[in-house]
Design a protein around this nucleic acid. Sequence first.
DNA 1: ACACAATGTGCGCAATACGAACGATAAGTC
DNA 2: GACTTATCGTTCGTATTGCGCACATTGTGT
Lengths: 256, 256
Amino acid sequence: MSSVATQDRNIASTFAKGMAVLAAFDGSHETLSLADLARATGQDRATARRGVLTLVQLGYLHQNDRRFRLTPKVLSLAGGFLQANAFGRQVQPVLNYHAAMLGADITLALRDGENVLLLAQSTVRDGPVSYGFTLGSRLPLLHTSLGRMLLACEPESLMQELVTRAPLPRHTERALENRADIAQAIGTARISGSCVTDGEFETGIAGLAVPVSRPGERAAVVGASFPSGSGPHDARLQRLHLCAADLRQNQALEKL
Amino acid sequence: MSSVATQDRNIASTFAKGMAVLAAFDGSHETLSLADLARATGQDRATARRGVLTLVQLGYLHQNDRRFRLTPKVLSLAGGFLQANAFGRQVQPVLNYHAAMLGADITLALRDGENVLLLAQSTVRDGPVSYGFTLGSRLPLLHTSLGRMLLACEPESLMQELVTRAPLPRHTERALENRADIAQAIGTARISGSCVTDGEFETGIAGLAVPVSRPGERAAVVGASFPSGSGPHDARLQRLHLCAADLRQNQALEKL
DNA sequence: ACACAATGTGCGCAATACGAACGATAAGTC
DNA sequence: GACTTATCGTTCGTATTGCGCACATTGTGT
């Protein structure tokens, strides 16, 4: 075992390793093997194995031959957060109302490290875009309107650091490749108070995002998506601003 | 430490204890203290403390003075499940379509131990009932239509065991108090292929549920709620059956 | 069928984590 | 406000838990 002299005795390293195993089930694969998990977490296979078998015993994973998958029980961990923060009463109805008025899905998002984390969404019947992301999904920070609007809400120094450090995979032909260009787009979003991207994350899809959080609060944004060229964005952005204003007014996100 | 002779060396007990700490944040309180967690988990306060501080370091909990709350990061654990099982593409659109046709929220649920676990829902704008539960919420098994329908889908012996063992708190004046009466209602649901309750979990609210799963599969149901006495249920149950048929057809739930 | 690569598992050993005891804080009483 | 008691949070000695190496087993390529 690592004999780091400044080992923090307040931290249970076995628990931290186990959580890394759980987090490795990030949705990018339906199932994972012990060896997959050892690679994903950097742990010895024996260590990853104990983590996985513990999760199976607790009911969070199901084992099928030599592969493991998450069970629905992990949803109850999210349920604790959603219930404690009254998302069902305070957030979802606001998103539903404005999504119905907009005629498109609306998504609420925060930043989690170098990713966008989706917290809630209202998905409408027969919306113009349905890209399959859900509550809990992670999206890239640099090529989505949600991500750029989140960065626009952060202090300049943190924004610059994240633009420099966050991954920059090229999702589409139209994706900006130059970090300086992305920083400039973020600066524009900061000034205009909204962000629009077009076809940088998914081809043929325009993304719109506006801030929900007030300055000094943890950055939160709402956004929507439309087919590229499917109409002017002014009224749509206005609708997103109204949604953000309602979320601020019912103070649903103050404790995030 | 417990010196259980048959300690399973494949299980990391420290990780299991840590997961019990995480699961203690079940949404029933906005924040919990160390002492709260020690009581909820049955652990020594020092043990619970290491669990909590580990979760803070990993970003799943936020500490404010002597109290702790879940952060949105726990949603990413759920996101792994939802993404891996394509809920955004395969489940949500079906629920959205049928909820729009029904004019009311539709919820998909499974059983998790002695509770109902909500897996997904489509919530409509201005639906007749909005009780604030979300994905990941737990509901009682014995007094909800979802719970009774789930029990109706289980083998007789398991159903009898759960009816005997599951908690029987009295949520409303109309709640059945006699376990034999509940078993009989479940038997009726099994025969008729649907379940209706009225005001047993929330006063003035009728619940409807029908099975999604096929015999031999893990029990799953869909349900909706309406104000008591707000109209006949036949057409509504029909709509729920159509929803269940669509979910079966796209095979979204086969791997749960 | 064989060789090699990859993966899964057992168990010796020591690092990690438990929890008793003590310190700190909160609550109740006068 | 002072004092007592109860409750909660933290430290650190000790031993139990869990790490990871080496071996066993399984999978893959020729």
